[in-house]
């Protein structure tokens, strides 16, 4: 299988080139956020406050890692279910977010908004927290430390494996992949 190397922050050129079903290896910088931090981000943006990080061009990985053992950079860090972020996602897309990494289907509203914002949604293998953590070379707290595992961290990743689910042409691997193998 052909695997594409993508550098983060993701360029518009790379976004254009991605098709649903593509396997990619990501290298560069991304932020983590899940339920509680999405709520904080939304509250801040709605109140017109500045965020302690820039969403423009950003890649957000939906994860809440386990604590690192002494001598390790990070614990296990696999993706969480993305649909719980759907409620908050359109606003983040309006503020320039370009790429999301999680697992599972997105809502119709999010998919429409992604098309409009020319953003992509990728999945990492759910449950593969140990494997994925090996691609994380650096982790630093960025915001909301009181949320523990749900805080926002900046990750430096090398060859982080993911699969393109939603591309900017309306492709959706959860639809096309299943349709190709469905027998009933």
């Amino acid at each position: 299988m052909k695997i594409r190397h993508i550098v983060l922050p993701i360029s518009d050129k790379d976004i254009k080139s991605l098709k649903c079903g593509d396997s990619v290896l990501l290298t560069g910088s991304m932020l983590t956020a899940r339920d509680a931090s999405h709520q904080r981000i939304t509250e801040a943006l709605t109140a017109g406050k500045d965020l302690p990080f820039d969403l423009d061009g950003q890649t957000i990985y939906y994860t809440g890692p386990t604590p690192a053992r002494p001598g390790h950079i990070v614990g296990s860090a696999g993706p969480t279910t993305s649909s719980r972020m759907d409620k908050y996602t359109p606003l983040l897309l309006e503020h320039g977010m370009k790429c999301m990494i999680g697992k599972g289907r997105r809502s119709v509203t999010v998919k429409k908004k992604m098309l409009k914002s020319r953003a992509v949604y990728l999945a990492a293998v759910g449950g593969a927290g140990a494997l994925l953590s090996r691609s994380i070379k650096k982790i630093e707290p960025v915001a909301y430390p009181e949320l523990g595992a749900e805080a926002v961290f900046r990750l430096k990743v090398e060859d982080f494996p993911a699969v393109v689910i939603n591309d900017i042409y309306g492709g959706d691997l959860y639809v096309s992949g299943q349709a190709a193998h469905r027998k009933a």
Partner: peptide
């Protein structure tokens, strides 16, 4: 590596 299989 004595890591949890899944972070959850």
């Amino acid at each position: 590596h004595l890591l949890p299989i899944c972070q959850d």
